[in-house]
Design a protein around this nucleic acid. Structure first.
Length: 572
RNA sequence: GCGCUCGUAGCUCAACCGGAUAGAGCAACGGCCUUCUAAGCCGUAGGUUACAGGUUCGAUUCCUGUCGGGCGCGCCA
């Protein structure tokens, strides 16, 4: 049982004993240090329901509250808040128990089978900064859920199908026949641009491209082979980016649009059999009552074009059915741009209506904001293009290398390069993960590549301070008895004890920024402890306790950053 | 036109589903390295939470309206 669960249960019992059996306890970490460690706000609501005086009810609740050996102090404040200060010994025991557990107290719960759809780049082009959010938010969620004991299945729903692949394969044939090596596939972006230009300028080529689409989707062996070659190159590029970003996606996780090609006709046939489909102007359309506007007009959801072709609306239905029926998931997460919100609502509603999924499965669109430019308008470079992801990572590592050379120039260059990699990539990822995912995303080199304040390097720096202490200390007992007597020690121990509750929140709300905020607070509390409480200069059991507290902090910080896909360093 | 979403310090962002005096970082100003890494710590200043109503003990949070940004709405994904 976590600290929050324990306190909630005890306050609920006390409320029941005081005559409010069904009142929610509303326990949460205190908003200010003066209010103790936790506050229970449920009394006011309960008093209102019972039509009694909240202060009097609070007194009854406090009298009934069983927190022996848990809390040091329980006070009533304001209109009926109950402020709880936890006992140092309780915090010490809680932290010690967590540290003895590989899951840091986050396991032992009912696990779910969760499919997470994330990253999902279009393989026609190189990955650009717009792919960052889905990739790292999804990866962090996959790690957190796995850590908590869920069975996570990653699905990289790459864009590997559709009209542009006809154009690209046709162009591949052309360039090779012409022996134009300068258009080799190692520059995917340039290759795409050249193909697009050719498509726009030459009607003959455009016709050939359209013919290739038909051949590709019809299973033509030669065109399929060209297509496969293109995909191999593009996927290799993605994998290089994933490796560099420390993102746990492999080729085994790829389940692209093309994988559902053979199911699409069946999806439409099933929808028709259920009487859900209407033909309109030659297209097969589903109208859903759930999406009517005030005039009573239903939103159209096209599942088949008038030329017989299918759309992503169809393949998403096929994927939905696959993830439920074949993968047997009971939770589906789609880490996709918020602009597709309506689309996913339609997919979920229609999928349920068509029986592709049932009520036992949770479907969640883990939406994130649109990337904007520094002027607050939709993002574009001066040339109207996009910034490649590798360019961002190059710049991040370059700046980090400059900084580490300035701060710690005595280190050998290879070491500084290695540090710059971890710091630079960490900064980029943290800058993104630390923002609420639903807010629009402003792309800015400086804020994204900052190394001060609430940034990954700050957290990594705190870790190096811990590591430095361990180096100087030599052998010590990581599990020595904790005696968090000083305020800074108490605050740090409290923070550590809250780790399981925090991860539960991240899992429930699918919000990695909660974890960032937690780790920042952890690092801050450690830094204060570091300033206020000498470790190596202390003696006897105090020294042993502080070393063990550092060890617990280091373990939690490293684990937490690891769940964000961010590495730590022993020195930087 | 309809729908979704957002509007918080000069800037970038929080605020744990209605709780106490709205918190951080950056930028500004002032302190702290002979002592475990100063990428740090401490302090000062900075707010009519876009605006107007409403709901109640209590609203950044919920409801209505207005203004403003972004996005989405039948054959791209």
């Amino acid at each position: 049982m976590t600290v929050h669960e324990l306190l909630s249960a005890r306050v609920a019992e006390a409320l029941a004993a005081a005559g409010a059996p069904d009142a929610p306890p509303v326990v949460q970490p205190s908003s200010k240090p003066e209010f103790g460690d936790y506050q229970a706000n449920g009394v006011m609501g309960a008093a209102k329901a019972l039509k009694t005086n909240p202060r009097e009810l609070a007194a009854k609740v406090v009298a009934a509250l069983q927190l022996d050996r848990i809390a040091d102090k329980v006070e009533i404040a304001g209109p009926g808040f109950i402020n709880i200060t936890l006992a140092d010994s309780f915090l010490a025991d809680t932290v010690a128990r967590q540290q003895a557990d590989v899951r840091l107290g986050c396991g032992a719960r009912q696990s779910a089978k969760v499919v997470i759809d994330y990253s999902s780049p279009n393989l026609a082009k190189e990955m650009h900064v717009g792919h960052l959010r889905s990739t790292i938010i999804g990866d962090a969620l996959a790690r957190v859920l796995t850590f908590r004991g869920d069975h996570v299945i990653r699905q990289n729903h790459v864009g590997d199908w559709g009209t542009q692949f006809g154009m690209l394969t046709a162009f591949l044939v052309e360039t090779e026949q012409a022996g134009r090596d300068e258009l080799a596939l190692d520059d995917l972006e340039g290759f795409y641009r050249a193909a697009k230009q050719r498509f726009d300028e030459d009607a003959g080529f455009a016709d050939r491209a359209r013919d290739y689409v038909v051949k590709l989707q019809g299973g033509d062996v030669r065109v399929r082979a060209l297509w496969q070659r293109f995909l191999d190159v593009s996927l290799a590029h993605c994998e290089a980016v994933y490796t560099r970003l420390n993102v746990q996606l492999t080729r085994d996780d790829v389940m692209g649009e093309s994988a559902y090609n053979d199911d699409l006709a069946q999806v439409v046939a099933d929808l028709k059999a259920l009487g859900l489909v209407t033909e309109d102007q030659g297209a097969q359309v589903v109208y859903l009552d759930e999406f009517r506007n005030k005039e009573g007009e239903a939103q159209a959801y096209i599942v088949q074009k008038q030329d017989g072709g299918y759309l992503y609306s169809t393949s998403d239905l096929a994927a939905l059915r696959y993830r439920f029926g074949k993968l047997h998931a009971n939770r589906l997460l789609y880490v996709v741009d918020a602009r597709q919100g309506l689309h996913f609502q339609q997919v979920f509603v229609l999928g349920r209506k068509a029986g592709f999924i049932d009520g036992s499965i949770a479907t969640e669109h883990v939406a994130f904001g649109t990337m904007m430019g520094e002027d607050g308008k939709p993002f574009k470079t001066r040339a109207g293009g996009t910034i490649k992801l590798v360019e961002l990572l190059d710049e991040a590592e370059r700046r980090a290398f400059e900084l580490v050379s300035e701060k710690n120039g005595d280190l050998p260059e290879a070491k500084r390069r290695a540090i710059a990699h971890v710091v630079g990539i960490g900064a980029v990822k943290y800058a993104d993960l630390s923002k609420h995912r639903t807010s629009d995303y402003i792309f800015d080199w400086n804020t994204m590549l900052s190394f001060e304040g609430n940034t990954a390097p700050y957290l990594q720096y705190a870790y190096t301070r811990m590591a430095s202490i361990f180096r100087a200390a030599g052998e010590f007992d990581r599990h020595a008895r904790l005696l968090p007597a000083e305020p800074a020690e108490h605050a740090l121990a409290l923070q550590l004890a809250q780790f399981p509750d925090l991860l539960a929140q991240v899992s429930a709300e699918t919000c990695p920024h909660f974890l960032c905020a937690y780790l920042y607070q952890l690092a801050t509390r450690f830094s204060r402890f570091y300033e206020a409480c000498p470790v190596l200069k202390a003696e006897g059991e105090v020294r042993a306790s502080r070393l063990a507290l550092c060890a617990a902090a280091a373990n939690t910080l490293k684990t937490g950053l690891g769940l964000l896909g961010i590495e730590v360093l022993d020195e930087m």
